[in-house]
Design a protein around this nucleic acid. Structure first.
Lengths: 131, 131
DNA sequence: CGGGATCCCGTAGGATACTG
DNA sequence: CAGTATCCTACGGGATCCCG
């Protein structure tokens, strides 16, 4: 499946190793973690409080995966009580920018999507009552 | 959680209605459907054949969702055998471009991520055998 | 051909409890 | 504080069969 990019349209490279990346970063929490770490280095508990609704389990899992992918670093201080700092790597920062551009698109069009959704649902409903 | 965009880093707008969009388009098949439709209008069966591994069920639900969101149009011809054409809307084309930029980033860095992963796993393994 | 209806399963991810 | 360990459920998504 080779894409012959039509004029004016950027193709999604469909060798699609890119999907693997999306599988990793497209989950429920990764982008939000990356977003808040884009601001500054944070500790575990700070992340937990900044990211609304995340469980400590999912925060741990998400952080481990992103660390494994080289997106962020984990720095542990052997003190009591324990302290761990998380920060984006250079790779993570480029990811933030790339994803940010997409999320900006999403923000810009979410309203338009809502309208399309309402219109679709209204039409579907009016057709349902004909039965 | 308001983001004060640090210098040089594009923030992910964390009002994060954008997550809803990602929830929709970040699933297993949506981007691939959008990608192949970026080339040209296609019929159901053509889509099915172009997108490797998709089941007809998932193709149907994916198409319905994207139609509902105003990303693509569904045109039915009342003939026998049935014929249905799918095409991107203008909204869908802007989505393709935004997502394409992100996927391009993913393609560009997937190798770097693989390396990070290998390094991480190797280190984790060497630490495991110390126990 | 282009689906809808069912059945079924794996897994992402939430809640809770315990630990160094 | 920053996790790890279990348990449990909802749901994404595959396989299969049927229908206009």
């Amino acid at each position: 499946m080779q894409l012959s990019t039509p004029p004016g349209l950027q193709a999604i490279p469909s060798t699609c190793r890119g999907r693997e990346v999306l599988d990793r970063v497209g989950d429920k929490w990764s982008l939000q973690v990356i977003a808040v770490l884009g601001e500054r280095t944070l500790r575990f508990g700070q992340l937990r409080r900044e990211i609304d609704g995340i469980s400590q389990r999912m925060l741990t899992v998400t952080l481990r995966n992103l660390e494994r992918d080289g997106v962020l670093t984990r720095k542990m201080y052997p003190v009591m009580p324990p302290r761990v700092d998380y920060a984006l790597t250079p790779l993570g920062k480029t990811l933030l920018e790339a994803a940010g551009a997409f999320m900006t698109w999403a923000e810009a069009h979410v309203e338009q999507i809502d309208e399309a959704r309402s219109a679709y649902d209204a039409k579907a409903e009016s057709q349902a009552e004909q039965a």
